[in-house]
Amino acid sequence: MTDITASEPKPRRRVNLHVLGPVLALVALIILGASLNSNFLSYGNVTNVLARSAFIGIIAVGMTFVITAGGIDLSVGSMAAFVAGVMILSLNALIPSMGIGVPLIATGMVIALATGIAAGFLNGFLISKIRIEAFIVTLGSMGIYRSLVTWLADGGTLSLNFDARSFYRPVYYDGLLGIAWPIIVFAVVAILGELAMRHTAFGRHCAALGANEQVAKYSAIKVERLRLMTYVILGLLVGVATIMYVPRLGSASASTGVLWELEAIAAVIIGGTVLKGGFGRVWGTVIGVLILSLIDNILNLASIVSPYLNGAIQGVIVILAVVLQRESKSAD
């Protein structure tokens, strides 16, 4: 049997635009950026762009699984603000008892992860067990988390204690071997996500669930639990993103994470994941996140068009990236 496999040529699809589309778009943006500003490819700028992509990137990796499994989560932006708020309040409250140091920050991180998991579980539970439409559940929780953080902050801004923040700050600004921590964490999350999507039963099952729930059910997949898990993982990753976000500015307010959900969803779709589910690829999502960040960066660096039009240019590129994939799809 083994020799039969060995003798047969491996089924290899032609390399086509559908696969390459987002990569080409990214390369084109990089070339454009480099030609417009000599600092574009500088170490500092590359680090800035990658590090600021990390929050949405980490969340978008989780979103890839949710969307692949046929779901959607509109609440991640508010959830991030809420988790950040809870984390800051907890850290401030724990300082008197724990003092400032690694245990304090570690406790804060655990609280952030736990809050994220709980928030994701709540979404997932309502969607998979109570069977309410994902769009409605997460639209509702989007408002709930946004209000909660406004309430926690009493309408203002929650700020982390200054000394705690100074201690925590390196988690965003420092790094390993010259690579900033957020970039490292984003890379690790993306690699694990890609492995999970392509090489584990979990990823395969997500795609099956998104493609046809009935087939998944008849194939002895625990459909409800699987769907719940996608939301819990997304919540966990929102927690991870928040852990990287809080040390950056040391604050959270009602305007934290506004529209992150849409950026994350856009990145997922630009990357080639199918919005209605059934097919997802994590590496595409990473490309999508980078494309979105680079557009902003280039527009800021170049000042070639009126800043009033930034949103329009972003919109055009997002739509183009998706159209490019569609056309090449029908061509193959």
């Binding site: 600092n39 574009f40 700028n45 800035n48 305007s255 902003d296 960066n297 800021n300």
Partner: peptide, 13 residues
Amino acid sequence: RDDAFNVMQDYLS
């Protein structure tokens, strides 16, 4: 805050 952070980073580059 977040948007201003990004814009300022780019100014500095």
